[in-house]
């Protein structure tokens, strides 16, 4: 029982990371029809922003050694700038392009960031020790969990509630939802399209920055492709949840995280290497039963 609870918390913690990444991807998809694979690389940049830019094998913390109250906003600002610059330089000129064109452009951005990081920081993964205090385990009636897992889950809940309040209550959030549903109509009503899109990129930047820090604190390793699997699994989560639906992205993220962790824990050892194959089989079954995802987005159904 204790064992299962421990696995469940691990699953929720991984699921929250996927949910955060999926929200970032889902938000842009909702408004722009852009499947932004570069989102994973925004996460990479957030993580690398902590250390001194150099090709040396050992990482020297700069921002990473700041107090968390300064560190977190700084990383957010850096990733927001990268995200918004990507919009202005790459996606704004492609505003009237088709969804596949946008997706291919996002692959290009992704490769550029990966190789840029490679050039500046070198090819070897670097060990980084961020917030090691969070890895201490707490003991709760025999349940031993690193504080970090709980912090990850709590952060995700806070960000999800914050995002949902922003979208529901704020004037910008309402305009974002209107634009996500019918971009042209929103413009006819005076909603500034480029501004709203820029804002969506900024929000996705904040979500990416949060994942950078949580993920790095867990793995302790920097690599120029560290964001890629996160983006891939989050994309799967978005599809499973229902393209364009934010609740769907969250549900999909948690589901993929939980399935992955549980398979890892309970598959017979010889089968564990094939864990991802099982995960994707599960995904395919979900999509066979519900082709539009678990929580299909109404606006997309209407558009087609």
């Amino acid at each position: 029982m204790i064992n299962f609870l421990q696995n469940l918390i691990d699953a929720l913690s991984l699921g929250s990371l996927y949910a955060l990444v999926a929200l970032g991807i889902g938000l842009l998809f909702g408004i722009l029809r852009l499947v932004n694979f570069a989102h994973g690389d925004f996460i990479t940049i957030g993580a690398y922003s902590l250390i001194l830019p150099s090709a040396s094998v050992t990482a020297t913390m700069v921002i990473g050694s700041w107090h968390w109250e300064a560190l977190i906003p700084m990383v957010c600002v850096i990733v927001i700038i990268v995200a918004m610059a990507t919009d202005i330089l790459v996606f704004r000129p492609l505003r009237r392009s088709s969804a596949p064109t946008l997706m291919i452009a996002s692959f290009a951005v992704s490769y550029m960031i990966q190789n840029g990081v490679l050039m500046i920081y070198g090819a070897r993964p670097k060990a980084v020790n961020l917030w090691s205090a969070l890895t201490t385990q707490i003991n709760f009636y025999g349940l031993r969990e690193p504080v970090l897992q709980l912090v990850t889950i709590a952060t995700t809940i806070v960000l999800m509630v914050g995002l949902s309040l922003f979208l529901k209550r704020s004037r910008w959030g309402i305009q974002m939802r209107a634009a996500a549903e019918d971009f042209r109509m929103a413009q006819y009503l005076g909603v500034r399209g480029n501004f709203v899109i820029g804002l969506a990129f900024a929000v996705s930047g904040i979500l990416a920055a949060a994942v950078s820090l949580l993920f790095l604190a867990q793995t302790g390793a920097l690599s120029n492709v560290m964001g890629v699997p996160l983006a891939l699994f989050a994309f799967v989560a978005v599809v499973v949840g229902g393209m364009g639906s934010l609740p769907g992205a969250v549900v999909g993220g948690f589901l993929v995280g939980i399935v992955t962790t549980m398979l890892q824990a309970y598959l017979p050892p010889d089968l564990r290497v094939f864990r991802d194959a099982f995960t994707f089989t599960f995904v395919i079954i979900v999509l066979l039963v519900r082709p539009a995802g678990l929580i299909p987005s109404r606006s997309i159904v209407e558009r087609v």
């Binding site: 004037r171 309402i174 939802r177 209107a178 549903e181 009503l189 005076g190 109404r298």
Partner: peptide, 17 residues
Amino acid sequence: VFGTLTVEENLRVGGFL
């Protein structure tokens, strides 16, 4: 109309400018 937004939200979208 923005189908997933409420009646009030639809109207407010028009007022933000």
